[in-house]
Simulated assay, not measured.
Amino acid sequence: MRWNHPQLGLLQLIHFVPLLEEDVLAEQVGEWGIGTALRQLRDWCRTGLRMPVSVNVSSLHMMRHDFVDRLTQQLAHYPKLGSGALELELLETTTIS
């Protein structure tokens, strides 16, 4: 994920994740990232390309009481992807503090 900042240009995740971590927006961005990754995986799968995609998830997002249920619902929309297609990575910046 990258942010096309109006003044600073294209910023890598490391430059704006700390800002998200302090806000509920982290959960919304996380949901968007998972959904986008699943759609991309589906599109690649349709062309015969199979490769895993990793999505960074904040601890705030992952600790939601309904995280597993929401993830299960999202995955259910893409049954042909198979296990291992989507990898979740817990952001290191959130686990250290």
Rank of each mutant, 00 (worst) to 15 (best):
N4F: 11
P6W: 11
P6C: 13
Q7F: 11
Q7I: 10
L10N: 04
L10G: 02
L10E: 07
L10Y: 02
L13N: 12
I14F: 07
I14L: 11
H15K: 13
P18Y: 11
L20S: 03
L20D: 01
E22K: 11
L25P: 04
A26I: 14
E27H: 04
E27F: 00
Q28N: 05
Q28Y: 00
Q28V: 10
V29A: 01
G30K: 05
W32D: 06
G33K: 03
I34E: 01
G35N: 10
T36E: 14
T36R: 11
T36C: 02
A37S: 12
A37W: 15
L38F: 03
Q40Y: 08
Q40S: 12
L41R: 02
W44E: 02
W44N: 04
R46S: 14
T47C: 05
G48M: 10
L49E: 15
M51H: 10
M51V: 00
P52Q: 08
P52A: 09
V53L: 13
S54I: 09
V55M: 00
N56W: 00
N56A: 08
S58N: 00
S59P: 06
H61S: 02
M63A: 15
R64F: 00
R64K: 12
R64C: 05
D66I: 02
D66S: 09
F67T: 06
V68Y: 03
D69R: 06
D69G: 00
R70V: 06
R70P: 02
L71H: 05
T72D: 07
Q73N: 11
L75M: 10
A76M: 04
A76D: 14
Y78K: 06
Y78C: 10
P79M: 13
P79W: 09
P79L: 14
P79A: 13
K80P: 02
L81N: 00
G82C: 01
G82N: 10
S83M: 12
L86H: 01
L86Y: 08
L88I: 15
L88N: 06
E89S: 10
E89F: 11
L91K: 00
L91M: 13
T93I: 07
T94G: 10
T94Q: 12
T94P: 04
I96V: 09
I96K: 15
I96H: 13
